[in-house]
Every structure is written in C-alpha cells, then in structure tokens.
Design a protein around this nucleic acid. Structure first.
Lengths: 218, 218
DNA sequence: AAATAAATTTAGGCAAAGCTAAAAATAAAT
DNA sequence: ATTTATTTTTAGCTTTGCCTAAATTTATTT
C-alpha cells in the first residue's frame, strides 16, 4: 500500500518521464513537487527499496514496470475524477485540477471502476489528456501543436500543453474549447501574431497561444 | 485548516455526543477510533488549543460551537458521498462506509455543494441518517426502534442503529430496506422472537434485529 | 476512611516526511 | 587539467500522530 506522498512522487516521475529517454533528476522532481532536493533523495531511496523505481546514486531515476503501473493508476484516477467534476458537477475545466489532486488518492479499486462505468468509459479528460484503462493502457492521441499545423488546414482542438488556470480561462474567454474547429488563416511576419478561425469567427492571437494548443487533423 | 486526524476526532466526538449531556471520556474516544488513551489525550490538547473542544483535565470533552460546526461539515460530506455511492455508482449500502470515510476528508466547499446539488439536496443518507445542510442544520427524524413500536401498528423502516456489514447484509437477505412497510405481528414469550411483516410477507426475527432497526410511524 | 481498581495524563520514543547546512560527486569553464 | 559551479547526498533536527510504561487522579469497594 502506497502513502499519499509516495503516490505523488510516482505520478510526478511518470509525468517527467514522458518523451524522455534518460533518468529523471532529483532537482527536476524537487522543482515539480515544490520540495527540497534532500527530501527527494530520501523518498527516492524509499521507492527504490520498494522496487518502484530504478535508482543509482547521482544518476537519476526511472520507473520500474511495477512503478509505472502504479503511476498510471494514479493518473487514471486523477483524470476520471476530472471528467466527473466537469461533466457531472459542472466545474469549469480550469477549476478541477486541485480537487482531482486530492481525489486521486482515494484507495478503492471498486470505486474507480464504478466511476469509470458511470462516466461511460471516457478515453480523455477535460484537457484532452488520455485516461489509462483499468489495465493501464491508454490510447495515444495523434496530436500536434497548433503552431505546427500548416496554414489553411483545418483541425480540431483536442487539448492544451499548459493547463494553468490563466490559460484555460483565456481560452474560455475566446470561446475555444475541446472540439472547436480551428484553422490558421495567416501569420503576420512583423510580430508573429496569428490570425486564426475558431468555429466560424476569426480572432488574432500571439505565438504563445498557438504553442500551447494541441490539435488533431481530421 | 484541519488535518485528517483532527477531523476524525471531531467526527467521533460528535457521534459519541448524540443524546449525551455530559462530556465524552478519553476512553470512549479511544475505543471508537481504535487508538490508545494516551494518543487521545495528545489530540485532545491540540483540539483544545484550537478552541474546537472544551476540555478540563480528567473531565472529558465537549465540542465548542466551532467544533460542532466543523464536525457537522464532515458528517455532511460523509453522508453525501454515501448517497452518491449508492444512488449513482450502485454500491450496496453495506459497502459505502469505508470509502466515504476517505472521501469525507476531501477539502473543497465548492465540491461538496455541487455534489449536494447533483444529488438533489438529499436529507438522509442510505442508512436513514440525516444529512446536515450547508449551514449545519439537519432535520431531526422522528424515529424509534422497532422494538419500541406497539404490536400491530404499521411503520416505515427509516434506518439502522448498528450499521455493520453483517447486519446490513442480513437485512438485504431478508429484503428489508429503507422505506419497507413494517409491522410487529406478535412476540413469542418463550424465546423473545418477533413475528414481523415486511411489506407483504411474514418472517420471524430475533430481539437483536428489532433492537437495531429504526422506524417511523406514518 | 482506607485500600484497591479504573481512567487519565505524563514522559520518553518511534516512523514518516519534511527542512537546513555541510560534504561529496559530477559537470562546466578556464 | 585544474578550478569553479552545480547537483546530489548525508547528517542531524522538526512536527505530526502514534506508541509503551509509569505516574497521577478519580471512582469504587470493603
């Protein structure tokens, strides 16, 4: 049985490992968890003892298959609860993260599987991130940044890279949400601003915006 | 902000205080929480410091109005989550307690009020216990033990005194649930067994059963 | 009213998870 | 290839919440 804190470390290592081939550094974990490097070292030793991570002094850590599965189950819970909060309790997508951060630690397999069924076995959370199923499998979404989309090619908004409240609220204000039809009309060479079409109306946004929106074509 | 453990103590003191005019003893708390008396004393001092309970050495404790409100909010969360588990996720009423025990500690007022709305502002949990509203008010149910009900008077089953799994499962087996119409037909003087009518069929039960079922008359 | 029993509190410790400050290892720069 | 800087680890301390064992207070007997 994992403690609250152990679960947070596993989850963090999982997130930091995405698209990373080498081990995760002590400092990277400390920064993400907002704790001190020495505390991370302590926990790393503990997780290593429990064979949830592979660890060599000074060499960073990687999840073992057991640790990976545990991490995925936490992510599964987090994202299912987010779906619940948005779809059933009408939270906005920028309000759910902190609450889900607590709910993800509730220990009951029965609960999470029943919740999954209640929600209709969703495969993505409200930010467009994939939800691992009860075996840990998650369908990888064919996503790209809006900034990488060719001009005049239409796509569908499927997620965000930065999921800070500020950004999510900005998107709400601009009426950009998951499923919006989106297309780059032109890029202004002078200031790198983007003229884009959302569903049926046009707006101008900065490069920072298009660099943080995920889309999929067709 | 209260810790997980502080919340459990407050909740326990609240439950033990029901229908009690004098203070709650250290040992009573220890027994309910399944911890040692010395640990209880430690926590009592802490809660006293925080003005959540009134405490004089060796004299037991009572909740202050602040402590009472905090306790009610925890009970509110516990019972709302129980309703959710039973009504939305199809748990049986004997399976919900342990999970609700964890869920009750999730800290978000917004969450609990939205959950309340989602469930349609229920006033009772699946065991027939009243749910405090967001101000802490709970409608007192006019309930009595089935054993106190006069013979041949019909009543409605509205709750249980003992909410152990064993008892709840027994009730399921006997098809006794909240809302069942119930009536004592006769009491066998020889062995104190009760012949009772549930909805439309008759069964015989022991004294222990009628001592643990709450009913209300019309 | 003593004496015994039971309940409660104190004193001293332990494990988890954090911290600071100092030491050690690795990486970067001259 | 040293020196300097950065990263990581170690050592030792803190708090929370629990524990055991001993001391103290209250309750119950005789």
């Amino acid at each position: 049985m994992l403690t609250y804190s152990e679960e947070n470390y596993l989850k963090t290592i999982f997130h930091l490992s995405q698209g990373q081939k080498h081990g995760i550094s002590t400092n990277a974990i400390a920064a993400k968890i907002e704790t001190k490097a020495s505390s991370v070292t302590d926990m790393i030793k503990k997780l290593n003892e429990k064979k949830l991570i592979k660890y060599q002094k000074y060499q960073g850590v990687t999840l073992t298959s057991e640790g990976l599965m545990a991490a995925k189950m936490i992510v599964r819970k987090h994202r299912l609860w987010e779906v619940f909060l948005v779809e059933k309790l009408n939270f906005n997508w920028d309000e759910v993260h902190d609450v889900a951060e607590e709910l993800e630690h509730i220990k009951s397999e029965k609960l999470i599987n029943k919740l999954d069924a209640f929600l209709g076995y969703p495969t993505e959370d409200p930010h467009g991130d994939p939800i691992p199923d009860s075996k840990g499998d998650m369908k990888m979404i064919n996503k790209q940044l809006l900034s990488e989309l060719p001009i005049k090619k239409t796509a569908i908004c499927i997620g965000v890279k930065d999921s800070s409240s500020d950004f999510l609220q900005y998107l709400d204000k601009q009426k950009i949400s998951l499923g919006s039809k989106i297309e780059i009309l032109e890029i202004e060479p002078f200031d790198q601003s983007y003229r884009i079409k959302i569903n049926d109306y046009e707006i101008t946004v900065t490069k920072k915006i298009v660099n943080n929106l995920f889309v999929k074509t067709n």
